[in-house]
């Protein structure tokens, strides 16, 4: 079952730690530029639209829709090798940006483009000092 999907520890930098720590608290944290209002993902140290330094963070709804997906039957690297078939997807979250993620909690054959989904956090494997989690999505 897709529930078996395990995730390697995500490498974080000071630019991206806010996102991963948010996931650790059960929150999907996105960035918004204080200067031009642009919402962006993945996070970075400046606004990609206006190059302004006034980056703020906010907690997004964690809800969105499957923009596109693929059922992956071959990956030669663990832990994904033994998780095949698993679902990779771009999920468009209600606040705008898309997140590359996995769809879990349903049979891969039931996933459809446009399917409403909500975030579901999982503890990654390996170790780091921070309290991080990885965002997957499940049908809502």
């Amino acid at each position: 079952m897709p529930g078996d999907l395990r995730h390697p520890w995500p490498a974080a930098s000071w630019e991206t730690l806010g996102f991963w720590e948010g996931c650790g608290r059960g929150e999907l944290v996105l960035q918004r530029c204080r200067d031009c209002g642009a919402v962006q993902h993945p996070p970075r140290g400046v606004c990609g639209q206006c190059l302004g330094a006034g980056i703020s963070h906010f907690v997004a709804s964690g809800r969105g829709r499957v923009h596109t997906f693929t059922v992956t039957w071959q990956n030669q690297i663990e832990p994904f090798r033994s998780a095949c078939p698993y679902v990779l997807a771009w999920v468009e979250i209600d606040e705008g940006p898309r997140i590359l993620t996995n769809i879990v909690g349903c049979d891969p054959g039931r996933v459809r483009i446009g399917m409403p989904v909500e975030v579901d956090f999982a503890r990654p494997e390996g170790q780091g000092e921070e309290d991080l989690a990885v965002p997957r999505f499940r049908p809502r």
Binding site: P8, P10, I99
Partner: peptide
Amino acid sequence: GMGGGSRDPGRAFVAPFGLTTVGSYAL
């Protein structure tokens, strides 16, 4: 062969989810 752990923070938005090269084109 991609999709394993990575020390690159930029890759962290794809690596933990098992994205492969074929997978990206399949999407």
